[in-house]
Design a protein around this nucleic acid. Structure first.
Lengths: 244, 244
DNA sequence: CGGGGGCTTGAAACTGATCAAAACGCGTGG
DNA sequence: CCACGCGTTTTGATCAGTTTCAAGCCCCCG
């Protein structure tokens, strides 16, 4: 039960056969703990294993134009560097936000497994497609919305994704994000993120203290963010309660 | 030789076997011509075939916050809706920019082909991973750069991708983009895009007239854009001359 | 108790948006 | 062949959102 969240996610989406499920549970892996700010992977690396996030939070980031731009967050059950299976050279850094634990699964074992089972290959391909959809949504977020909507949208996405892996309880979840992280993800300055969060607080839509985010009026926050969760392509949620 | 650009792209990246190549050439398809602004696919559609761009330019777009945000461009040889193979519901519109021709290949034929050949499944998966990398690069572009760098980066990306499919001749290529399209892609207003392009012109870095873009000093443009093409993961270019 | 990271606040400067209008090109129909 | 109309490009002026710089505060950790 190391990468259990991954398995149940794949199960929910692709309806794995019993055989495929045991293939997954038999995958070899090594667990590793990460401290806040520790790098899992650097741009240019050619890793020989893939990572599954077991707990905590990773960010994909790169320094562009003297800013640290975060292009994605990865939660428990996600495989941030699955692309390295087919694109060997990592094109971003992968960094732990707060402390995390990960499992490393050798490329060789994954390749072998997918050769044996086309169903599993599909399931993993699908995971990468969902992340691609998330990147596109971020493009829309950064390109079209101003600060208020941008931050609200990020919060909505994180909430739904946390719920999906059973880590959010009635719109409330622990997350070690600093306002600097939000700024890096939203393409804004820390100062402005601070004022923006205060504005969302002031509207009575969220609470955020002590590394815990609570959506007080989820529907209004979604409306503010123009958020619709279809792009996450989540079927059959496996745990956690729904926001709405 | 309908989707020839696609085949040579896959070939260059994944080194297909002769058998796989004939599988590709045997794929059934229907050709379709598109007028400027014609939609190939609308958000919410559940297509039963995938599109290969044969000539022209498609944009993926969605209306967000009363703006039309373009989240990607697709050139000859690209398969913009390959994700619908595993994520049935389209989450964006797909629209022709200028007139284009496309080939539609039934999902069923693609699925069958990939079941027969794991190598081809990998090759197509890889394509979707490259597009994911492009979306991430756009996140960085929109999140981190200001107007000048943003537009420059877009031009660099389009140049390299056009070269890769043999559609750019010494840094010069025809493309039916309007300044409005650039604005929609870069998250800027048309007015500001206009001034920005004039600035790049004024620096003597590009010419852009009559739907033809020419890079006059590619290296300086790349420097301005902080552009490095690794994210496109292009190996073994199949045609066209190099910029640098 | 001290130090430091993260959060908060204020004021000034800037980038880019918006509004408005004119010039340009190009295809169409008279 | 010219006049018209429309979409695209261009220009100017004003306005708004966001950044930057600077400083103070809070709170947790050592």
């Amino acid at each position: 039960m190391p990468h259990q969240k991954l398995i149940s996610r794949l199960q929910a989406a692709s309806g794995l056969s019993d055989q495929d499920q045991t293939r997954l549970t038999r995958l070899p892996y090594k667990v590793k703990s990460l401290a806040d700010g520790e790098y899992v992977l650097r741009q240019g690396d050619k890793p020989s294993s893939c990572i599954v996030v077991m707990s905590g939070l990773l960010s994909r980031q790169r320094v562009v134009n003297a800013r640290n731009q975060i292009s994605s967050f990865y939660l428990a059950g996600d495989m941030p560097d699955l692309p390295t299976l087919h694109l060997p050279i990592a094109d971003c850094d992968l960094c732990s936000v707060g402390s995390s634990t990960i499992a490393a699964v050798p490329h060789s074992a994954l390749r072998e497994m997918m050769n044996e089972s086309a169903g599993l290959a599909h399931a993993f391909w699908r995971e990468t497609l969902i992340h691609a959809a998330i990147y596109r949504e971020w493009v829309e977020n950064l390109g079209s919305r101003q600060a208020l909507g941008r931050v609200a949208h990020l919060l909505c996405e994180l909430t739904v994704r946390m719920e999906f892996v059973g880590l959010a309880d009635s719109g409330s979840f622990r997350i070690p994000l600093t306002q600097q992280d939000v700024a890096d993800a939203c393409g804004l300055s820390v100062v402005h993120v601070n004022r923006t969060i205060q504005e969302i607080r002031g509207l009575g839509l969220i609470e955020w203290e002590n590394h815990t985010v609570t959506l007080l009026r989820p529907e209004e926050l979604k409306a503010l963010a123009e958020f619709s969760p279809e792009y996450l392509h989540e079927l059959n949620p496996s745990g956690g309660s729904k926001v709405s």
